[in-house]
Design a protein around this nucleic acid. Structure first.
Lengths: 364, 364
DNA sequence: CTGAAAGCGCTAACAT
DNA sequence: ATGTTAGCGCTTTCAG
């Protein structure tokens, strides 16, 4: 008799049908309904259709909360954008990719930001709200700029995560597991080589090399310059997340110093557009006076002539992150080797061969 | 004795402490722990600290799944981007605003896309996955381009939602409840008036007026032109989500038709940048030959001279959407009146007064 | 193949 | 103020 004292059991103004209601109506046990709802094969067809009918009649929708409690898992990833002012187009596309893959896999994506200092000890780091209670999310996708203390904190708390590795800042090298990386080193090398092949000798790199992604590209540029016996030059003025202004100011600085230069390799498209603007303000034209290469190719066709740049398939980065996250969950906490996404130099209209190319060749 | 047969109860390799473990350790009842964890005032300080200690010792994190089942509510909103190819910077900022407010209110945001046809009947619409099971999300924020069939479907299924109203497409006028709108009509009128005041007579509107947001701006423009006794002109070439190309092609079309024109009002900044590019390709300079105004001010300073445009505080739009969504949940399903976000004309460098302003004045 | 029933971790009503 | 306990809706043994 106790059973009929239950709260909502036979409360007519209850709005949503439960598995029990379906079972009652179909004259089967709740277990059977569960099996049908979860598409398990071991159900008599007669019963199955009776259940399906009843479910449809009651417009039954399984309750995600009950399910996740019973299964002790939801299907929810968290995309955490760390230490960024806002959702930049680059990360928009990554998020998009994550969402896309998740959708197909039946998972969902939460979007959160998280600001933290790299100098706080892992054990003392106050985690983002979404991680403060248990079971809000199954796995975390770390994007934005991250540091070891956060990943350590996650590990010590047994929170599964995957990492967008390019923007991970640490002294040593991170062991290449549970992370996705796009191959900006190869892309940057290709870009530098391309400029050199076009006959450029004075090639300036612009980008804040205190940040690891700019730095990786810079080092690839360095290697190519060295290989070609050329003198590298770099200029950077870091100004928060405003990369356009960074590029603009940096170029002004270079021009003020009267360093001779025929080409610019920028660490990011935004930086390139800013640099371009800086050139324009000094009456310099691209590519007539200065050749220009960017990085990312996320801006769409917002420039003319079309910007030569290194394309990063950010959508694919996101999809792979999601795939890896879901793999982590289903293959019980095992580490998964790094996934490397190739990049591609998009030769467009902002680079020109130098007229004195032959002379330059001879010199080398 | 039954109680000790429970599955994990005293399984040492269980990883996460439950409320019961805390209660045991603190020598209190689970109810008390619950009260402490939920910061309820009616707990003896002595007990409270004992519980807190025990919780810390066990590094207890409340289980969100159990909690949401018991409370029959999670703290999870869904941001649904409808019928868009990707997360455009405009909506990035709205999402950002939603996330910001939610964070402060202790809510979380899921990001989903949803493509649907306006011609499907509400009852036959296949809802996005996140809405197919019950309790995945408490309230839905509708962004992107939406139609009545979807909002109807949500209503008939008793799923609470709030709407970004500017991009809502329907024949009649939507009743102004549970929605946030930014005042693009006033902003567009101001922009048109500004051009007219500067002495422009031939002002062309560019933007795909089949979309309601472009259309609203267009109509505001029309009213101002009419008020000033001027002949309106509009050009549009819709090309998917690629607004830059839309602007570019449209301007080429106008120029091909040799319609005299001294100013362009574009429905969006992207369109404006595209139009600008189109002008440049024909050797026309902004603002020397043509004055230009955009709309949104989401792109950051990506242009030079700086684009005059109508600023929309998209962050605020997002925050208000979140606020309204949460209000809906806490004030038990009541309708909430529309919130209107003001816009602001940012007078920058792409408009110039006409030299023959006085003559123009006299004519009118 | 199906039914019965024990949990999942937490909240909230009730009793003390 | 605190303890006890019946659920929340679902999954998953375990018998049969």
């Amino acid at each position: 008799m106790k059973r009929f004292t239950k709260k909502n059991r036979n409360n007519p103004r209850r709005t949503t049908a439960t598995i029990r209601d379906v079972a009652l109506r179909a004259n089967v046990a709740v277990g059977t309904v569960s099996r049908v709802v979860n598409n398990r094969p071991d159900v008599n067809e007669e019963l199955r259709s009776r259940v399906l009918r009843a479910a449809a009649d009651l417009s039954y929708r399984p309750n995600a909360r009950g399910r996740s409690l019973a299964r002790n898992s939801s299907t929810l990833l968290s995309f955490i954008l760390s230490n960024r002012d806002f959702l930049h187009p680059f990360h928009s596309h990554v998020l998009q990719g994550v969402q896309e893959f998740c959708e197909k896999a039946g998972y969902f994506v939460m979007y959160t930001r998280f600001q933290y200092s790299p100098s706080i000890k892992a054990s003392e780091l106050i985690l983002p709200l979404v991680l403060q209670s248990h079971g809000m999310t199954d796995c975390v996708v770390l994007a934005g700029t991250n540091y070891k203390n956060f990943s350590d904190a996650l590990e010590s708390r047994d929170i599964p995560y995957v990492l967008l590795a390019n923007n991970f800042v640490s002294q040593g090298v991170r062991k290449p597991v549970n992370q996705v990386r796009f191959d900006d080193v190869t892309g940057a090398g290709e870009a530098a080589r391309y400029l050199i092949q076009l006959g450029h000798r004075q090639i300036c790199y612009i980008g804040d090399i205190s940040m690891p992604w700019y730095r990786a590209r810079y080092e690839a540029y360095l290697r190519e310059m060295e290989k070609a016996g050329l003198q590298p030059m770099a200029q950077t003025l870091a100004l928060s997340d405003d990369r356009f202004t960074n590029g603009l100011k940096s170029v002004q600085e270079v021009l003020d110093q009267k360093v001779p230069m025929t080409a610019i390799f920028a660490g990011t498209d935004d930086v390139a557009l800013g640099a371009w603007e800086g050139l324009r303000r000094r009456g310099l034209e691209v590519p007539r006076d200065i050749s220009l290469i960017g990085f990312d190719d996320q801006q769409g066709p917002l420039a003319f002539p079309a910007l030569t740049t290194v394309r990063v398939d950010t959508g694919e980065v996101g999809r792979q992150l999601a795939k890896m996250a879901i793999a982590r969950l289903t293959s019980s906490g095992q580490s998964i080797p790094e996934v490397l996404i190739p990049t591609k130099l998009m030769k467009r209209e902002t680079c020109r061969p130098l007229l004195n190319m032959q002379r330059a060749r001879r010199k080398s």
